[in-house]
Design a protein around this nucleic acid. Structure first.
Lengths: 355, 355
DNA sequence: TCGCGCCGCCAAAGCGGTTTGGAAAAGCGA
DNA sequence: TCGCTTTTCCAAACCGCTTTGGCGGCGCGA
């Protein structure tokens, strides 16, 4: 059932039916009611393609997810972010198109999305330091919002981010307040912008107390369980091991937990652990009382809000970029406690001779 | 730059240019070359909307992801499945549209997708026993493939699934061969089809050895870390605790591991654990040697193959449904070992008096 | 009663492609 | 040179919707 048929069945012109359905005033309320009722009865839905061809608005937003061939990690945060954004789109009558693209081909993908006219805007995931995508999107004039930021990007752009620096600074401070002095950082890969900011927050907190930085206590790599485990094992085997560790994700925190247990260390007593918790729906940080002390910020909410920002920008055709910085909560769980007084129970002696 | 402009710039008609670009024979090779070169130079991409309006093919596939409000779990498997499917789509020139929908509204969503003509087919996620969606899609005549199956669905349909029953039967058998007799099952929610099949496999293996089923050793619930932990704690506190546990996902396995450690049990020695490993990119089961013994099947590959099936069905307009059953590997990791001889080291005595 | 403005509707021209039905030009055998 | 086929291109219709520009008819004030 298309518009013409519907119009014919009502003895009206397509024009009038279209106007009736789209709420234009040039049609009497009587016929409008009649049209709406008929549309409902026939389950009529305007053809998206035709509509967007006629209006010039695609009514859809692209999310480009880069998938590298080398390390094929799909961002674990992705599903929940999408779920949040999807809620917004559905309310606004937008569709969401997903483009999986081998990274490196992203530039062409954005060009294509624009030239093919298949979307009204895009959301940029996983920005890196000085991410070239931003400059490119700016140039080709496709509305976009970045989830995160890109340090060292000169062009203005819209973004939504959490205050990663502040979050990790606060977490580090919290550990320092508990008496910890050797604090490890198990971070994401260092070209990701959020990882840089978290590292900065960590470093600033140490610096504020005049503490030296130990390169051995900083790890950065893909946020997997295994990497968390390895990094922690390595740190805990140091002559002067950390009494606390900061982690960039629940998943690597779980790896760190495994390493602690392997060394017979009790989390919260022998080793303190703070992680960042994106509130992933399938990886909750406990139910009532959090398992891990964590900096917490819902990535699903972020998805919802980022999408709202983008739709707002598209609707208003605003030139001035919008930005939004969310603060993460610091929630106390069972994985932190005061720094142990002496050498811990792993049986290791500090300052072993093989150092 | 659109077709008309491109044609004008070449001194040709839109017809000829269109034919040249789409490989039709009614155009000389000389002009075809000229057109292709010009298109490349101008970075011309045909407008997707116009094209699909003209051809009647949307060149896009919908993935409907239901998000319930009660328990807002987004399937953790989703991101990787999507990544796999996306690879297929990108190769075939298809787009992927994602519809996030509150479950219950799914029926209407499928109707809409069809009536609005915005997709050529859909992939159905997370089928349940006798899932009504299948019958409905069948009725409205939208091509679809189900990732998984729906026991008790009378209409024929296309699906791709792994052999969940066989996988869990083999895993159970493996544990039985190691001497385990008390084996727990931490399964997904019982209305999900895959959970039913896994349970069946588990029960069949026990039955084949004439072993009785203990309802206390079977848990089913959302596959979260916390649920895995709780279920395992509960089982391990039984008067006659299990010496081995089967788990439906890496995430709940991690919860079980936590419970084991909390009881001072060593995985692989005091307690054996087998999980199902979907090879999620962000949750690998170790690097070289697997952490958990597991039934393994890549959900990303499944995504790729499911998408291929659907595109094949759309292209061939085949009536006969296609099906594909993949076998999971049983891979040996560090979490299994022979059943402990006596009561294990948790300090519990079997057959305690409070039973 | 007449003239004017407004209301309610419609015909037709797009949007940017594909595709049908020719038509001119070129090739070919007699 | 003629007639016929083949090659190469084009004009126009169409996909399903929106939107511009009108056009009758009715109400209203003079």
């Amino acid at each position: 059932m298309n518009l013409k048929q519907l119009a014919q069945s009502l003895g009206l012109s397509p024009t009038t039916v279209s106007r009736a359905l789209n709420g234009y005033p040039e049609v009497s309320e009587a016929t409008r009611a009649r049209v709406i009722e008929a549309a409902r009865r026939h389950d009529y839905r305007p053809n998206t393609r035709a509509k967007s061809l006629a209006t010039g608005r695609a009514m859809s937003i692209a999310h480009v997810i880069p998938v590298s061939n080398r390390h094929e990690i799909v961002n674990p945060v992705f599903a929940d972010f999408i779920a949040g954004a999807g809620e917004t789109y559905v309310k606004a009558g937008y569709e969401m198109v997903l483009s999986v693209v081998n990274d490196g081909d992203e530039a062409r993908m954005y060009q294509d999305l624009r030239n093919r006219g298949s979307v009204d805007g895009v959301i940029v995931h996983g920005p890196r330091a000085a991410d070239p995508r931003i400059e490119m999107l700016h140039r080709i004039g496709l509305p976009f919002v970045v989830h995160g930021r890109a340090t060292g990007c000169e062009v203005p752009y819209s973004w939504l981010d959490i205050n990663n620096r502040r979050a990790f600074q606060r977490a580090t401070d919290f550990l320092l307040d508990l008496g910890h002095r050797r604090i490890g950082l198990v971070n994401g890969v260092e070209w990701m912008d959020y990882a840089i900011r978290r590292r900065t927050g960590y470093l600033e907190a140490l610096a504020a107390r005049g503490l030296a930085v130990d390169g051995n206590l900083i790890y950065s790599g893909e946020m997997t369980e295994t990497n968390g485990y390895r990094a922690a094992r390595h740190m805990l085997a140091l002559p002067d091991p950390p009494t606390a560790i900061l982690t960039s994700s629940m998943i690597s925190a779980i790896g760190v937990r495994r390493a602690a247990w392997a060394d017979g260390l009790d989390l919260g007593r022998d080793l303190s652990l703070i992680t960042h918790d994106d509130e992933l729906s399938y990886l909750r940080n406990g139910d009532e009382v959090p398992i891990f002390t964590a900096t917490r910020s819902s990535v699903r909410t972020a998805g919802r809000m980022t999408a709202e920002m983008l739709l707002g920008i598209i609707a208003s055709e605003a030139e001035a970029p919008q930005t939004r910085l969310l603060e993460a909560d610091l929630i106390i769980g069972q994985s932190t406690g005061p720094a142990p007084a002496g050498p811990h129970s792993s049986g290791q002696q500090p300052h072993q001779e093989h150092a």
